[in-house]
Amino acid sequence: MTGAAGQLGRQVVRRGGGAAVGFGSTDLDITDPASIAATITGECVVINCAAHTAVDAAETDVENAERLNVLGPRLLAERCAEVGAQLVHVSTDYVFPGDARTPYEPSDPTGPRTVYGRTKLAGERAVLAALPGATVVRTAWVYTGVGTDFVATMLRLERERDTVTVVGDQVGSPTYAADLADGLLEAAGIVGALPPVVHATGGGSASWFDLARAVFEGVGADPERVRPCTSADFPRPAPRPAYSVLSPLSWAGSGLTPLRPWRDALAAALAARADDDGRSGGR
């Protein structure tokens, strides 16, 4: 499994137990054919969680985004084809334009509007061209509640501020990394029988404002302390999709276990964080 140092990669290793071997960027450089050849030596299933995910930075760091999101996945797929390995490649809702009114299906027209989205789409195509039996898993709004992700940031701001202003006109599907990791491990077990592209996110949909209020409520804080704003109030270098909900039908239709509804998953994430804080003696 690549990208073992990232929030999703850490969860795949943790949830997979001894069956999942993780490689961070210092162990495996996915842009270096020699490094890949030394690591992928025979039949196995590779879950590629490595990527350039800094959406705003990618707008000016195009070369690195292309290396990690296009070149690396292509090299992994080519090596898997050489040695008879399988590949599950993680992608994103940003491959879509974000102007839909109903959840996106894998067959819907793509139209990325950012460098990140364009490179991730190019990576999908490179993987499937080099290894037609691979499966691309698109996901969205991934969090653990630890570090600097959105949920962790809301937890920090709840402690530091009286009120927090959060965008309310961007809608997607919050996805708990632990649930997604379980899904990826399940998909890895039947990857050869899966469609080329499937979607896996937490069940249901929410705006960032909805998610922030749910975080506050989940830790016993007053959700009214979260105030809504528009995307125009917080312009970013890379435009965010207004609507990027991914349909779960391809995932469930392939016989895979649906990920939990996002509110249930958030409650589990907050409980897991509280347990970890209790063991470490922190809040």
Rank of each mutant, 00 (worst) to 15 (best):
101 R>I: 13
105 E>C: 12
107 S>N: 05
107 S>V: 14
107 S>T: 15
108 D>N: 09
108 D>Q: 04
109 P>Q: 03
112 P>H: 02
115 V>S: 04
118 R>S: 13
122 A>W: 04
124 E>F: 10
124 E>Q: 12
127 V>L: 09
128 L>T: 15
128 L>P: 13
129 A>P: 06
131 L>K: 08
136 V>F: 12
137 V>T: 10
139 T>G: 06
140 A>I: 06
144 T>W: 01
145 G>Y: 02
146 V>S: 09
147 G>W: 00
148 T>R: 08
148 T>K: 06
148 T>N: 08
152 A>R: 01
153 T>W: 00
153 T>A: 01
154 M>S: 04
156 R>I: 02
157 L>I: 01
157 L>D: 06
161 R>G: 00
162 D>E: 15
168 G>Y: 11
168 G>K: 12
172 G>C: 13
172 G>L: 13
172 G>T: 15
173 S>R: 03
173 S>I: 04
174 P>H: 11
174 P>Q: 12
175 T>D: 05
175 T>V: 06
176 Y>K: 06
177 A>W: 13
178 A>E: 14
179 D>L: 10
182 D>W: 06
184 L>A: 12
184 L>Y: 12
190 I>N: 07
191 V>M: 10
191 V>D: 06
193 A>P: 00
195 P>K: 04
199 H>S: 00
201 T>W: 06
201 T>F: 07
202 G>E: 13
203 G>F: 09
204 G>M: 10
205 S>G: 02
206 A>T: 14
206 A>Q: 11
207 S>H: 04
211 L>Y: 00
211 L>Q: 02
214 A>M: 03
216 F>T: 03
218 G>K: 07
219 V>L: 07
220 G>T: 09
222 D>H: 07
223 P>D: 00
223 P>T: 03
224 E>I: 02
224 E>H: 14
226 V>R: 06
226 V>K: 07
227 R>G: 03
227 R>L: 15
228 P>E: 01
231 S>C: 09
234 F>T: 10
236 R>C: 00
236 R>L: 09
236 R>K: 06
237 P>S: 08
238 A>V: 02
